[in-house]
Design a protein around this nucleic acid. Sequence first.
DNA 1: GTGTATTTAATACAGTTGTATTACAAAGGA
DNA 2: TCCTTTGTAATACAACTGTATTAAATACAC
Lengths: 227, 227
Amino acid sequence: MPRVIDEQERRERIAEAVWALVSREGLHGATVRAVAAECGLSTGAIQHSFRSQAALHRFAMELVIERASARIDAVGREGAGAGSGDGDVGACCADGDAAAEATLAAVEGVLLQLLPLDAEREVEARVWAAFSAAALADPVLAPLSRQMNRLIEGLCARCLAQLRAGNVLGPAADDPLAAPHLRALLDGLASGLLADPSPAARRQARALVHTHLESLRAEHGDADPST
Amino acid sequence: MPRVIDEQERRERIAEAVWALVSREGLHGATVRAVAAECGLSTGAIQHSFRSQAALHRFAMELVIERASARIDAVGREGAGAGSGDGDVGACCADGDAAAEATLAAVEGVLLQLLPLDAEREVEARVWAAFSAAALADPVLAPLSRQMNRLIEGLCARCLAQLRAGNVLGPAADDPLAAPHLRALLDGLASGLLADPSPAARRQARALVHTHLESLRAEHGDADPST
DNA sequence: GTGTATTTAATACAGTTGTATTACAAAGGA
DNA sequence: TCCTTTGTAATACAACTGTATTAAATACAC
């Protein structure tokens, strides 16, 4: 047998070149030739790994989901047991306020990871924005877009559940709309940050996530008592 | 003088053909030839009105802003005086609840106009999504993206001001973050609706806007008393 | 009517794209 | 050592792109 190559790793390397190009120049910049140049291969090598450009783009989009999914699952696993990492919160709610603050801060940190607040997340968010825009006119990519939304909403739901378990939230958190609400907010913040990544905008986004969580805590009445 | 043509109207007609194509096939579908076919002109006629394809795309994006801006201004003008259209609310806050409900409903209606809940808005939102994604990698279009965000945030601010004037909101509405918060929420909801325009998702989006406004009303404590 | 300025249509052209095809290099089994 | 199998590189090709150029048609001034 000749030159053995880790095909999966090769495919991911190519997909990462796609990411770089999409982030810099948009999806239309990720031509086969440009991708080949970006990762130091020939167009023939690209074609050996991917039947077509559409397959390449699809794989690159799926890889974004896969990586994000892995990160989110990791957060979920480590967040399920501990509040902020140095103390268990779920069971012992004896000294309320300190533990509550810790849980709140931990959740806030997790949610902030979904925003393009550093260089790496910004690339990821730009790439995702390009792909999800393309998905609007491409039935093959559209399901991936929805999958990502479900993924993030799931993370939001788990964060809210954790806050509820720590008795940090009022009854408002039981609202089944709380997770979609949080997801939409994060999505809109991310899109705004991509258009304006200034330090001021980043500060504002952080503050917004903070006050949103605080407002969930402050809320003690029913959401809609009139109807 | 030969055939006199309303150049501005012609340009807008061409731009609307761009919208249709972008909504159906994405930005890359708006080639000069496709645009010409869409509006029943020749490529020569397109080139007579627009120096280049980039200029055409830019104009089409600006026209989205212009149209949206006109709608928003109209809403602002009619909304400045009356609450819901059949009764003045700003001054007479004698019978609180009924007037408050009316104001709230009126504002809710305005905000819902920003979401792709009907066919026309959906096209507009799809077009805008495509353009703002392109703006991430195009320095010429990027300012337009930010301009639109400012426009919508301004509308949000005015809506909140109206609610405040009607004594519908607690002190939380004075938070300078309330308008950016609302804008981000609407942005995220819009993007979610484009990915999943199902009736269920639309119902959820409507409900979310409603509960968000309700939560602003319910909130009476400080947003962040601890720090 | 004639002429002229101006818009339109058609075509030409150079560049780029995705993809198929081809020849070449490399690596292990006989 | 040679040979087969696999990956690589280069090139070819057809389709499509934006744009420049050209010729025709049109509508008003005179």
